[in-house]
């Protein structure tokens, strides 16, 4: 399964989000590939991502894509990430 972590450029915030999502998925024992991408990449028609993790500010720009968009309030809060990923994948 593929998960996108999104930010504007795909190289800053998204990498932080990916790093903590990887950690949470490992703790949950869920196998998934998390990729840090730019918002343009997440908006592509052929996007293979099942889930897109994005900070709340970007969620509005992702409306209508095929992937399930999961808004993240605090990318450093491992508890929040755990709960949201569990809810989406469980």
């Amino acid at each position: 399964m593929k998960i996108y972590a999104v930010c504007g450029a795909g190289i800053g915030t998204s990498v932080l989000l990916k790093s903590n999502a990887d950690r949470v998925l490992q703790d949950l024992g869920i196998e998934a590939e998390v990729q840090a991408v730019s918002i343009e990449q997440a908006l592509e028609d052929q996007s293979p991502a099942q889930i897109v993790l994005a900070t709340e500010e970007l969620v509005g720009k992702l409306a209508g894509i095929r992937s399930e968009v999961v808004p993240v309030r605090n990318i450093f809060d491992l508890q929040e990430l755990t709960e949201k990923l569990q809810a989406s994948l469980g």
Partner: peptide, 16 residues
């Protein structure tokens, strides 16, 4: 162009 999206967590911004 993207708004204050780099406010990544409560009280914390990462400008880049």
């Amino acid at each position: 162009s993207l708004g204050p999206y780099f406010v990544v967590a409560p009280g914390i911004a990462i400008a880049h």
